[in-house]
Amino acid sequence: MATPRLELLHEAPTTAARNAPPLLFVHGGFCNAHCWRPMMKKLAGAGFACYALSLEGHGGSDGRAYLPMIGIADYVNNLAAVGADFASPPVLIGHSMGGFVIQQYLARHPAAAVALLASVPPSGLAASSWRLTTRSPAMLMRLNLYQQGQYQPDLAELREMLFSPAASDRTIAEFARHAQPESQRAVLEMAFVPPLLQPRLPDVPALVLGATGDALISADDVAATARRLRSPAEMLPGIGHMMMLDAGWERVAARLLSWLDTLHPAKYVDAAA
């Protein structure tokens, strides 16, 4: 099969460029690369070259017509195709499903560092689905219908599912404008991943963040992802699942920036910057 055309957004540094690998952002389900726009602008303002990929079947990338057939391995191949175009391995920053894709990618491909935000954990979505089944079955049903493109929630329902109460209507409406169904094959492949199919990942600098207001990914899920990467888990208060857009997203950006600043200065920080 021919390599699909993939949408790749770019924000060039708006201050003195750092001597650092590029930052490559990978979105989660429901959305595309545009969800990273505010975060990219913020980090480009700190001297980083920022790129955001729309996975196959999302945004302006090829694949809308065959989205239900696309699997996690295809998303990993998308990431590998984009990563191969950089002069050196990028820093990968992934959200939700994008964090799960990055975990699979790391098993076979290099990265300078990884930051995972509200990532689907190594074992998949089984624990999250069970929690919603017992605590909020109506939300689980709406999410499933939303993923399949059979239901369009209003702003209040999107806030409950994906944002914190503090999120503005404007932010949620902008998210909804870019939202779309997700591949049911990819969702099924994340439903449950048995331990024997969870390969050990290489040692790589990692930041693993979760949000206390996240209705989908729990603190236990965040901890499981952090253990796999042999990194501490950090929970940011008062933020919902869409950590890069929700009210308080600037705190997420600040934590990312402070983490990037701790990486090897000879490699990541230009002394003249």
Rank of each mutant, 00 (worst) to 15 (best):
P194A: 06
A118C: 12
Y66L: 11
T134D: 09
Q104L: 06
P232A: 11
R227I: 10
A17E: 10
A126D: 09
D214Q: 09
R5W: 14
A156W: 06
L67R: 10
R5K: 13
Y51C: 04
E56H: 11
L260V: 07
A233P: 02
P121Y: 01
A247T: 09
L92V: 10
F86L: 07
I172F: 11
L140H: 02
L23G: 00
V114E: 03
A266H: 08
V204K: 00
P68Q: 14
L209K: 02
A166G: 13
R37P: 05
D154Q: 08
R185H: 05
L24V: 12
A20C: 07
K42D: 13
L158W: 06
A253Q: 03
A44W: 04
P194N: 06
P121W: 01
L207P: 04
G124K: 03
P195K: 13
V252D: 00
M190P: 05
H109M: 13
A226T: 05
A226I: 06
D270L: 14
G248H: 09
M243Q: 06
P232H: 09
M235D: 08
A112V: 12
A16H: 12
G124M: 09
M141N: 15
V252L: 08
S119D: 01
P21R: 02
Q198L: 03
P265H: 13
D270H: 15
L116C: 08
A273D: 12
A254Q: 14
P121M: 04
D74S: 15
D214K: 04
T262Y: 09
A206D: 01
V101D: 01
K42A: 14
A12G: 06
L55M: 11
P89R: 01
T15A: 14
L245E: 05
Q180N: 12
P90F: 02
A176D: 12
G63I: 01
V269T: 15
P153A: 14
A112N: 03
D62H: 05
V114A: 03
L188H: 12
R255G: 11
S231I: 04
V208N: 05
Q152C: 13
T262N: 03
L67M: 13
L145P: 00
M235W: 03
A223G: 12
V26K: 01
D214Y: 03
L79Q: 07
V114F: 03
F25I: 05
A12E: 09
L53S: 03
G124S: 10
H58E: 09
I102V: 04
L125K: 00
A46F: 06
W249Y: 14
R200M: 07
R37K: 14
S218P: 09
A253I: 11
I239P: 01
G63D: 02
T262H: 12
L245D: 00
M69Q: 15
V114G: 00
E56R: 15
R255N: 07
D154A: 10
D246Y: 03
G28D: 08
F48V: 07
G83M: 05
W130S: 14
S136W: 10
D154F: 13
Y51G: 08
L236H: 05
M235G: 02
R108L: 11
L158Q: 04
L216W: 01
W249P: 06
A219C: 11
A215G: 05
R142N: 07
P89F: 06
